[in-house]
């Protein structure tokens, strides 16, 4: 696991589930607030299971968050220097 974050290709992205923009998902999912994101890259270091960096240093969310990665996903959310990452959890009906 590279702690510096690694860049991704579009192919990697195509295999991951891409979450819709709004609405409640079935599994917890990470969403980026794009106007706030400044490509600092901490998220890719903290939750590499779900985030890799593209060629411009911006996060690519590669799929829903599994139970094992949930703790790391939460840490990534609190660690973002610009509060640009959110964890959207399923609404239990």
């Amino acid at each position: 696991m590279s702690t510096t974050g690694h860049t991704a290709t579009a192919g990697q992205r195509a295999t991951g589930a891409v979450a819709p923009r709004t609405g409640s998902p079935d599994q917890p999912v990470l969403r980026v607030d794009w106007p706030d994101c400044r490509a600092r890259g901490l998220c890719a270091e903290l939750v590499p299971e779900n985030i890799v960096l593209d060629e411009w240093g911006y996060p690519l969310v590669t799929g829903p968050v599994t139970r094992r990665a949930l703790r790391h996903a939460r840490e990534a959310v609190t660690s973002c220097p610009h509060q640009a990452l959110r964890l959207i959890e399923p609404v239990r009906r």
Partner: peptide, 18 residues
């Protein structure tokens, strides 16, 4: 220093803030 964008393999970005 947490505002810096510098990082390395030995000192990843999250370390300073952490």
């Amino acid at each position: 220093l947490s505002t810096s964008r510098r990082f390395s393999a030995l000192w990843p970005r999250f370390v300073t803030q952490g």
